[in-house]
Simulated scan of single mutants.
Amino acid sequence: MDGPSPTTDPLRNEFGSLNDLAHELASLQDLALRGSWRSILDKVSRARSLDLLSKPHDHLIYLSYNVLALTKLRRFTDASAEIDSLHDFNSHQYKYESYPQLYPSRSGSMVPFSLRFIHAQLPFKLENRQEGLDRFYLLLSFIRQKIKEKGSNSFQESIKIWRKRENFVLHCLIGHHLGAKDFIVCLDLIRDLIDHDYLDPVLISKLGYIQMQVGDIEGAKGSFHRVETMFNEGKNDGYSSLSEVEFRNLVNRNKALIYLVGKDYVSAVREYEECIERDHTDVVAVNNKALCLMYLRDLSDSIKVLENSLERVPTVALNETLVINLCSMYELAHVNHSEIKRTLSNWIAGVAPDDFDASCTRA
């Protein structure tokens, strides 16, 4: 919510569990973590039909989970209609101070930040890119206004939360511009952040990636070297929330990208292997190692890398890009690839979350 964070809120002591914050919130959260989006829709529908939601913020939290579930299930029009039913996020009916008997001493918006984010993201899913960009820039402006307000009141923990949100939204904006090959806009957004002393290694790595896209290989090397120096010096502004292992793997993956540009696939494989040895759930390293092996014409080992990853950590490795690549390799390596892909598709049906797009197997 846009009010105080539950972890830093002095009123947090009143609540013993997530369920004290909202009706059966722990159950909703558990279903979301398991990817049981259809069950969430059922639970929300039941709670609404039985009038189990007693407070205004209960309705908003359940609506947020419902919208998230609809979005995950690619029911984007339904998700958009659900959000539109709120009309105006800034309406007085969504502010704590409008209900002093229910929320004594609380103020600010009770609209969850996640709902504001999905509101910005949905137009892209509905193929309205410009509206999506407009909403993201409005969201960024909203966040920066919050940071300004918190700064004047010295709420340091709250500022940190909003700074992380700013960083997250900027990464999304950069991603959307990158997808449209708006490289100059991406570079301007990143450099503006760096000029404001953001020491986010993920952001600077993204700068290096974009520099590679525009052919500035030396600039990319400089950005990647800066990330490695930050790691060696223990510098991280905290907004990216990288663990030490994630930071180390980021450095290795950056090195691998430079090797890939030079078509030194053997060296790139070595970097990705270091990542996987540290963290076998690093799907980017797994996928890219397999691609490098394919470029080295070692299709058999390439397939093994992806298959082993799926066997080892299916809930993590089961992403659509990895499965698409594996199926493409089956098509190159096997005459009876249709049968193999059907077997894979049947296995996926038993372990995948509700939102996994099974059509990516092309079985």
Rank of each mutant, 00 (worst) to 15 (best):
A363H: 08
I190F: 01
S309E: 10
A268N: 03
T315R: 12
G179Y: 09
N19F: 05
E24Y: 07
G350C: 11
L260P: 02
R116I: 08
A26W: 09
N254P: 02
V335W: 13
L193H: 06
V351Q: 10
W347V: 02
H177L: 04
E228Y: 01
R248V: 06
G238Y: 03
D182L: 13
R48C: 06
R248I: 12
F76E: 10
A256H: 01
T71S: 06
Y259M: 03
N288K: 06
L138P: 00
A26P: 03
L41I: 00
E331A: 08
F231C: 03
N232F: 05
A290P: 00
D279A: 09
R226H: 09
L310W: 05
V335I: 15
S302R: 11
H334D: 07
D88Y: 02
L293G: 02
V266I: 07
K341H: 11
K72E: 10
N249Q: 11
T343P: 07
M110I: 07
L52D: 12
S240V: 07
E246S: 10
R248N: 11
L250K: 02
I204R: 03
L299A: 05
R253I: 04
Q156Y: 15
H337I: 02
A333I: 05
V269P: 01
I217G: 00
I210H: 00
L115D: 09
F356P: 14
Y272Q: 03
G132N: 04
D134V: 12
L115C: 12
Y94I: 01
A256Y: 04
Q211I: 00
F113S: 15
K304R: 14
P201Q: 04
I204V: 14
